[in-house]
């Protein structure tokens, strides 16, 4: 293996991290409010809205049940419309984000559901409004769980980014496909897998660590 390959792998890592981080952040910007919405409009919750809840839960479920590879293909026209192209790192951010939003939403909802209703009751008894109940009571209580959820989601996006790489995106996925598969360079394939494993491990472990660090119960 020569230095060009190493620099290719270096570039791949950077592209992968770029796609993963940007997509995860974007997915959280939309996914957190989405998850909160699912939570607060649920049955017996502070802003119970059966119809709204059903609709949003349905949309999230539909997107979650589409295999990511198919979603990728399915979203190509949409990606083109937004980024102008369907190829490259920036372009893969679109399907990655869209695919991750419902995952984040469900995970946020689940984390918030772990907080017992008595916390909401205490908040209400203090005269908190719905926004304050979420912001000052439920989210701070759910923080450790939200953190470990974030690590898991980031790792998922990383895996997806490799898939996106196969469909014209950059990153380690594209590298593995181009060199490892089309050119039979097993060493590249192996190295790419190794790097991916290490990166996922680092993300997972730091998530667990942060979650532990901030958990006080």
């Amino acid at each position: 293996m020569n230095s060009t390959l190493w620099s290719l792998i270096g570039k791949g890592v950077i592209e992968t991290l770029e796609m993963t981080l940007i997509s995860t952040i974007l997915a959280y910007i939309i996914g957190v409010p989405y998850g909160v919405l699912l939570k607060v409009t649920g049955k017996g919750e502070i802003m119970e809205q059966k119809v709204v809840n059903k609709i949003f839960a349905f949309i999230a479920n539909v997107f979650r049940s589409i295999p990511f590879l198919i979603l990728l293909v399915f979203l190509i026209p949409f990606t083109r419309a937004i980024v102008g192209t369907s190829i490259g790192t920036e372009a893969s951010i679109v399907p990655l984000t869209v695919g991750t939003i419902p995952i984040v939403a469900r995970m946020v909802e689940q984390s918030l559901n772990e907080i017992p209703y008595r916390i909401t009751e205490a908040a209400k008894s203090m005269g908190a409004n719905s926004w304050q109940i979420v912001k000052e009571f439920i989210i701070p209580e759910a923080m450790p769980s939200l953190c470990s959820g974030t690590a898991i989601n980031t790792a998922t996006v990383l895996g997806y980014s490799a898939m996106a790489g196969c469909i014209g995106g950059g990153g380690l996925g594209a590298l593995a496909l181009n060199y490892g598969y089309y050119r039979y360079q097993n060493d590249v394939l192996f190295l790419t897998v190794l790097v991916l494993v290490v990166v996922v491990q680092v993300i997972q472990e730091s998530g667990v660590l942060i979650s532990k660090r901030i958990r006080h119960s």
Binding site: A122, S125, F137, E141
Partner: peptide, 12 residues
């Protein structure tokens, strides 16, 4: 104000 059997403090 109200206090409860289960205290209902924020653990975090």
């Amino acid at each position: 104000a109200m206090i409860f059997q289960s205290f209902n403090l924020l653990s975090q």
